[in-house]
Design a protein around this nucleic acid. Structure first.
Length: 202
DNA sequence: CACCAGGCCCTAT
DNA sequence: ATAGGGCATGGT
């Protein structure tokens, strides 16, 4: 067992179950509505602090926009103003609509996605404008329960802290984590959440 | 006032 | 392959 192996136990003991935003992202099983919420938030949270993401999602909720279908049905300028607090809001409006179109129209809805193999789905997501590796993996792991480990700024810092100097790229770091930890989506969800919580904590 | 926050894309070396 | 600029808001 390397340095990553004991990480989950250590962080779990320190923080318990992930709370706050994570109580939705790490919840399982999730309803279809909850999955759609996570998908929407995966875009809004790009390079934004969670408070601002919350302001944006509250605006959407108040406007009665709760599903991917609702997003697509909302006029672009109106949607942009609603999600404005999350920052980079013009881009995010386009990205959200892109993603919703892909899931609803190209894939034929959330349910059909169950049948798409993880590698293929990941490649499709990455081909969309505005979806990079982290957002794709957020969606795969937290909305669709696929055991892929999400690499973000906090994971990189944690890796550095553990002196995992060999891994630089997203791919290398992801391989390292996935090789070190039993491939289980519940474990990956909680561990990634705990790494972020720990990163914010100090 | 300056800096930061859970990315991603495009362009130039 | 890798570096730097642009995209934008609200909190501290």
């Amino acid at each position: 067992m390397n340095k990553i192996g004991g990480l989950y136990g250590e962080l779990k003991k320190k923080y318990g179950k992930p709370k706050g935003q994570w109580s939705l992202w790490c919840k399982r099983p999730k309803t279809e509505k909850e999955k759609e919420q996570v998908i929407i938030e995966s875009i809004l949270t790009q390079r934004a602090n969670w408070k601002n993401v919350q302001l944006a999602t509250e605006n959407l909720k108040k406007a009665g926009i709760c599903s991917l279908k609702d997003i697509l049905a909302t006029e672009t300028e109106r949607l942009a103003l609603l999600i404005r607090p999350s920052g980079f809001y013009r881009q995010k409006t386009e990205r959200l609509k892109n993603l919703c179109r892909f899931i609803l129209e190209t894939c034929g809805g959330i349910k059909k996605i169950r049948k798409i193999p993880t590698d293929k789905l990941r490649a499709k997501l990455l081909s969309l404008n505005g979806i990079g590796p982290e957002t794709a993996d957020d969606i795969l792991l937290y909305a669709f329960q696929r055991p892929v480990f999400v690499i973000d700024e906090y994971t990189r810092r944690k890796a550095k802290e553990l002196s995992l100097r060999k891994a630089f790229s997203y791919q290398a770091l992801q391989d390292l984590f996935e090789k070190s930890i039993r491939k289980n989506y519940r474990l990956y969800q909680d561990l990634h959440a705990l790494i972020v919580i720990d990163g914010k904590d100090g």
